[in-house]
Design a binder for these strands. Structure first.
Lengths: 391, 391
DNA sequence: CTTGTTTGTTCACTTCCCGGCGTAATCGGT
DNA sequence: ACCGATTACGCCGGGAAGTGAACAAACAAG
């Protein structure tokens, strides 16, 4: 009836301490683990033998170097064995679906992508996604039964309470809880979130935001969204729709936005609109990749447009930085790495944010490019599995 | 050499669990404590006897009612004995100093206030504050040696790393770390923070934001600042200067602000400026109190000005709500409770924030009025003492 | 007065962690 | 090649903490 005893919880806590230390630092000796956790060597030994019995860790055959330069018995390194089973990630964009199969450390083993007009109707896209997951598992040589969890993202805010897509941003997805739907199709737990949030998670774990505690990740592509990391954890807000930075109003009489308001920042800086601005001046058909290339090459028109867009985004970010005083701003999405965009953002932050706030924030491009989302969904799935009891 | 053993830490953790439960729920029986903490009655008994030996809790003479309506041995309630020693709070504003002496539960026993031009020079104000603390202790009949810690706030952002006041907002306080200075004068630990932050803490603990996890507390008085609570904890940012909502630019060619920019929101809505707008139309000299009274009485001019100010603030808050998706917005400061101001804020949030964000946020006036800060500084001191080992 | 219920305590037992001792393995010096 | 120094690891006994069962105490209801 009552919760399991405190002593067992203590042991569990110590076990977790050992495992996280091991996860963070890589293979180590028992003695090092003892030093790192503050536990005694005896206890660590006991924990490690228990963990070896359940197969969660194993000893490395390769002997490590003695502790401190000098002599001594060489330690036996104990290493985290890759947990059994696998996970998958599903990145659903406006115009693409991308899936990945990965082991439970987050290493991606197979990947698939399709171009597809996702917006139009949801069920078909979800069928397709489920199919791609199964296919990716096959390519990676993983039996379907090994799948433990799936992470997914959609390019729209997701209400955590109804698990529905908030507001009519994505037509054809009304009243369709994407997580539940995919879960029904695949038969394993699905963790769904917004694309900017998983992007932030990816950059936080493996990208430009590694080690930062307070970071704002902005994603600029078809839309404009932000994933906000505070205290090292994703901030989702009361109803889970935090990060809607794209709907700051920048002009009373601006273009009408899909959200229903007028003059939203998103209508000014979204990639399609920027391309629309530039296209008349170029012969070839522009794409975001081409625009980025032209920017790196120093094309004046592109630089001007991207710099202006950066300034507009930076204006909103400056306000947000004043409020949150973050350590970093990471810019992702298809246009994220453009130098002019970054410069524009930096300039606006320097201009509009408080001097001390501006001085303490780093502005950097995302390191994961268009694979940020899929990396993040995999991380979401890995975290989701780890949160359950390891049984 | 090594850290104290895990077992002792376990007992300490369980003791803390009992204490916090007791602090949250008030006097309870040992059996209830066992149910609440998940520990066994036996363990709780053991912990309680230990706590009674050190005098941290005591049994109430008044017997409680049996657990569930029916019969049974009546429980003997154990209650948190007011911890020995006391704390003090120091609220430093632009034009006043207010101090309070309180017991370690946060109950205020004596209070003093002075009007004083604090901005001009820091050292004098700090001397004065230290003097007032000693005086308040005397009035409360507390020996000076009982003072364990002091919480204080200043009306300016405070850099946590240098513990200095950030930027030249407060002239005469440059390079003067207020916390350290007061600590030197009083000889006990001083925990210093920004006024909006402690206000948020106060409303969170004892006011309008009780029980909320994500709240934005805005303080509108001489300046405009925000204290941001996320996940039930104050968010201070990387360098501790989060919440600078007053320096959102609302007009390129606005008035020059003390922060160095032009057109900051603060220059438009700060109380002195609002009073300056209204004064010409009134015979008597206006004060914030009078303005609030006129607003409640339905004075058209005041309502218009406050409503416009609310809309301006609400505009900035709407953007922040879009980013953070909080549960509540609490408006404090001398003009906080004005109905027109609140209406204006609510209207702007409804207009400019995403519909789902606006729908999930409550806008309310602070409940603590001009005593929010002093309550918060006391809470800061209480928390600061509790964080140390109870020895 | 008896019965039932809830509380709080005592006791025997288990779980867990720690320190010390002994053994294993390697390095550097002679 | 040998020997001390150093580090790593396992085993054993001791101590600390928590738990369940049993028991006395205090009341309400019948």
């Amino acid at each position: 009836m009552s919760i399991s005893g405190s002593l067992e919880r203590l042991r569990a806590a110590n076990t977790r301490a050992v495992l996280t230390l091991l996860a963070g630092e890589g293979p180590m000796s028992r003695a090092d683990l003892a030093r790192g956790t503050g536990l005694s060597r005896t206890t660590v030994s006991s924990l490690v033998t228990a963990l070896m019995a359940t197969g969660q860790v194993s000893e490395t055959t390769a002997r490590g170097k003695p502790h401190k330069g000098g002599s001594g018995r060489p330690p036996v390194l104990v290493t985290l064995s890759a947990p059994s089973g696998c996970v998958a990630g599903v990145d659903i964009g406006h115009r693409h679906i991308r899936v990945a199969a990965a082991d439970r450390t987050g290493r991606i083993l197979a990947e698939e992508a399709t171009d597809l007009d996702v917006d139009a109707h949801g069920p078909g896209a979800l069928d397709r996604a489920a199919h791609m997951v199964r296919s990716a598992l096959r390519t990676a040589g993983l039996p379907r039964g090994d799948l433990r969890a799936v992470g997914m993202c959609v390019p729209a805010p997701l209400d955590r309470r109804s698990s529905r897509i908030s507001t009519g941003i994505l037509p054809g997805w009304r009243d369709l809880p994407p997580g539940d739907e995919l879960e029904r199709r695949l038969g394993v737990p699905v963790f769904a979130d917004n694309d900017a949030n998983v992007g932030a998670l990816a950059e936080l774990n493996h990208g430009a935001a590694r080690g930062m505690l307070d970071v704002v990740f902005v994603k600029l592509s078809s839309g404009l969204g932000a994933g906000i990391v505070l205290g090292g954890r994703l901030h989702r807000g009361t109803s889970g729709i935090a990060g809607e930075i794209g709907h700051v109003q920048v002009g009373e009489d601006g273009q009408v936005c899909r959200c229903g308001n007028r003059g939203c920042l998103e209508t000014v800086v979204a990639a399609p609109r920027l391309i629309g601005l530039l296209q008349p001046a170029y012969d070839e058909e522009l794409s975001t990749e081409l625009v980025r290339a032209l920017d790196s090459a120093g094309d004046a028109g592109v630089r001007r447009v991207l710099s202006d867009a950066g300034r507009a985004v930076g204006r909103a970010l400056a306000d947000l930085c004043n409020s949150l005083n973050p350590e970093g701003v990471v810019v992702g999405g298809s246009l994220g790495p453009s130098p002019s965009l970054l410069e524009g953002i930096r300039a606006s932050i320097d201009r509009y944010a408080q001097p001390d706030v501006a001085a303490s924030v780093t502005v950097a491009a995302g390191q994961l490019g268009d694979r940020a989302e899929i990396t993040g969904t995999v991380a979401l799935a890995v975290a989701g599995v780890a949160a359950r009891v390891p049984a």
